[in-house]
Write a protein that binds this DNA or RNA. Structure first.
Lengths: 156, 156
DNA sequence: GCATGAATTGGATATTTATGCGCTATATAC
DNA sequence: GTATATAGCGCATAAATATCCAATTCATGC
């Protein structure tokens, strides 16, 4: 059952080296690679890989990996900064207040800026407190989800 | 009948300056711009514009123009500077005051100079404040429009 | 005038993709 | 051990997007 990770790698490879324009085709390819799943699962895989569908410049579309596919080393270190410094987050309406260990607000704030979470419009750091301005339409839960995915565990 | 060309221009603008993730939303926007068409037509328009649908980096997808239609990389980074730094704009007559995050006024000011918005005659940056002088004949609304188009995702 | 053809569109429908729900396997806590 | 949680998945179906076909408009040639 726990074959998703391997499969994602294969999907990534297939997308990188072929012009694929629909999920059924990709399903076939996966099958010949030994991964037999349904379209539903594949759809979820593609979302997980952040795969986009872009024009081939003429009349068709094909799947493509995001430019920024891998987590860079520097990004990893920023994630570490966040994990080292952060103590708590609380919200009030469109704003959040992050408490950090003393002196860590700045490094956490910079890290958050660099990570460019889609929910965050901007941050303002003091010594042990960061003021977070959420983007319009985003809420506390959105940001917490984002945190959960981007910060705690680093894949690969 | 011959309104496709104009409509395509509007569609392009809308896509460039908003995060749109489905055609119905875009249809609504088009309607408020005075273009009343069906989803079928819009689908054809998007194909004609070679619009792609790409990941926003986390859980969503949005429409995007192909690379060669996009602004240059360097311009992007200046736009990022503005987005990262700017907090608010207020006007008084021919002058505007932009508040930025501390220490960001300079980078925002430089970015505004480089972007060379036609409404701006000149800027003067302190630490967290920028003084903007509008060109004669231009007003607050002109600049806000320009901002909206050139620097997506600033929610006033 | 009329015939012809290309371009554009909407309605209906086909195709493609996303997701709610429930099941199972594995992990975690007690 | 048992209870509880959670990830991963398929099925069925919803939602989103593309396309077939017929109708309309405008241009052009006769």
């Amino acid at each position: 059952m726990r074959q998703r990770h391997n499969r994602l790698t294969v999907v990534k490879e297939l997308i990188k080296s072929n012009r694929i324009d629909n999920q059924d085709t990709l399903l076939e390819m996966l099958k010949t690679e030994g991964y037999s799943v349904t379209q539903a699962t594949l759809s979820r895989d593609l979302k997980m890989l952040k795969v986009g569908k872009i024009s081939d410049g003429w009349s068709g579309y094909y799947y493509a990996l995001p430019d920024n596919d891998l987590i860079s080393e520097s990004e990893k270190s920023y994630i570490q900064d966040v994990r080292r410094g952060i103590l708590s987050i609380e919200f009030s309406g469109n704003f959040g207040v992050i408490k950090t260990r003393p002196g860590h607000a700045n490094s956490v704030g910079i890290a958050l800026d660099v990570l460019a979470l889609p929910e965050i419009l901007g941050t303002l750091a003091g010594d042990d407190t960061i003021f977070v301005i959420l983007r319009e339409g985003m809420n506390k839960e959105d940001l917490q989800d984002s945190f959960k995915t981007r910060i705690p565990e680093i894949e690969e």
